[in-house]
Amino acid sequence: MKLLTLNFLTCAIKTCKGSPASFPLHPRDSELEIIETDINLPFLKNILPRLTWDAVRTISTELGLPELPATAPTREDLVEPSSTSEDDAEEVPTQVAKDLHRLLLETCVKEGKLVCGCCEHEYQVKEGVANFLLPGHLV
């Protein structure tokens, strides 16, 4: 499961939804794997405002990955200045863009747990698939 997916998930328990502590879920005991995919620069530029950067930083630190800067990169930070163009296809990604792509879309939790900071519930990740089913769902 990709780290970017965590930007869109919270604890599945209803009473946790109102609590800021239910986001992001905290990876624990994770086994990571890198699954390479092609970089999509227009996507990276546009996703920036949708990222909760503090959450991305927290997750990255908790996984023992290199510390991220306090503020999110800007669109300009992602494109080699010499290549800036009207046509997206002409633009060349910077190292910042490549690192962001690696972190959000290529770094995957293969096995481990996702823990809610509000109720401490642990969701299992097995073979890359996170399980959010709760006993209470199935009645």
Binding site: M1, K2, L4, T5, F8, L9, A12, N40, F43, L105, G128, V129, A130, N131, F132, L133, L134, H137, L138
Partner: peptide
Amino acid sequence: VFLDVVNGD
């Protein structure tokens, strides 16, 4: 860009 399919209700 594909994210994931999660197992849930």
